[in-house]
Simulated scan of single mutants.
Amino acid sequence: MHEMIDRFTSYLRIEKGLSFNTLQAYGNDLLKFQGYLEQRGISPLDASPEQMSAYVVHLSRKLGKRSVARNISAIRTFFRFLVTEGVIEANPARFLETPKLPRKLPDILSVDETSTLLEKPDSSTPLGLRDRALLELLYATGLRVSELLNLKPFHLHLEGGFLRTMGKGSKERAVPIGEKAIEAVKVYLAHGRASLAGRKGSPYLFLNSRGTGLSRQGFWKIIKRYGVAAGIRKDISPHKMRHSFASHLLEGGADLRSVQIMLGHADISTTQIYTHVARKHLSEVHKKHHPRS
């Protein structure tokens, strides 16, 4: 079973271009599924639809709906792969039903909160210059954190006002950059990055104090620290900045299709959730300023 899971995740990585985090989550979900069945003396390859349904009930007692839905997706996709590979004849997971998920509106920062956050880094130090460029570029582009941290200097086309990034499914896209972010990145490249790089010669744009590429955990700590410094009580994360980028664009009148392209969403329905946030904002503006609201 372990070997089949490794083959499955390799297939997803090569053929489907799924991210490392998704592959890791799917692999962990399948190992837990295997453990549950083997504790009951059942080989996963011999599991019946009824036994799989029992596992979903077991998960539902411990996990939220989104986690259960991801587990079901992993199991269904895995057994579909086994059928394709000729390991089994029929997919016993095909009847598993995904729980209906509530449509959760993304929590965002206001424009004022975002501006306060971006002003917090100390531009007199190399780390402060890095952090200013990091936050400005994140808010200017709405990149996923993995896309942002995997950037290398040659991905930047600052004179043209855009950058190139590799998104989900190994799809490259060009994303425009605003003037303030361009200026922050230029200053970082001129006066900050070389000091951090030392002799390491790391290819990544954003470096830590040891001269190697900044990690997701490192960036998470950075943005949390500046959130506290800015007096923002909301829980701040890199992904919340991505949500804010999209919502602020729509509030400012950007069309949905353009925001979809900038975010790298394959399906416009994924982007449409931000229209609900924009409508909520417009409703609040109307109530506050219309004389008969």
Results as ranks from 00 to 15, higher is better:
residue 6 D to K: 11
residue 7 R to F: 04
residue 7 R to Q: 05
residue 10 S to W: 13
residue 10 S to T: 13
residue 17 G to D: 01
residue 19 S to T: 08
residue 23 L to R: 06
residue 25 A to P: 00
residue 25 A to N: 07
residue 29 D to T: 03
residue 29 D to Y: 01
residue 31 L to S: 14
residue 35 G to T: 11
residue 36 Y to W: 05
residue 37 L to N: 04
residue 39 Q to I: 13
residue 43 S to V: 10
residue 49 P to Y: 01
residue 52 M to G: 07
residue 55 Y to P: 10
residue 56 V to S: 00
residue 64 G to R: 10
residue 65 K to F: 12
residue 76 R to K: 12
residue 77 T to N: 12
residue 81 F to Y: 02
residue 84 T to L: 15
residue 84 T to W: 14
residue 90 A to L: 13
residue 91 N to R: 04
residue 92 P to A: 08
residue 92 P to W: 05
residue 95 F to I: 13
residue 95 F to Q: 11
residue 95 F to V: 11
residue 98 T to D: 09
residue 100 K to G: 10
residue 103 R to A: 13
residue 106 P to N: 00
residue 109 L to N: 06
residue 114 T to W: 11
residue 116 T to V: 15
residue 124 S to R: 14
residue 129 L to Q: 01
residue 131 D to F: 00
residue 133 A to V: 03
residue 144 R to H: 02
residue 147 E to G: 09
residue 152 K to E: 10
residue 155 H to I: 04
residue 159 E to I: 13
residue 162 F to I: 08
residue 175 V to Y: 00
residue 177 I to W: 00
residue 200 K to V: 11
residue 203 P to C: 01
residue 209 S to K: 15
residue 209 S to D: 13
residue 211 G to H: 00
residue 217 Q to S: 14
residue 225 R to G: 15
residue 228 V to S: 13
residue 229 A to E: 14
residue 233 R to K: 14
residue 234 K to I: 07
residue 237 S to L: 03
residue 237 S to Y: 01
residue 244 S to H: 03
residue 244 S to M: 09
residue 249 L to K: 10
residue 261 I to M: 15
residue 268 I to E: 07
residue 269 S to L: 12
residue 270 T to P: 02
residue 274 Y to T: 02
residue 279 R to C: 10
residue 280 K to D: 15
residue 282 L to G: 00
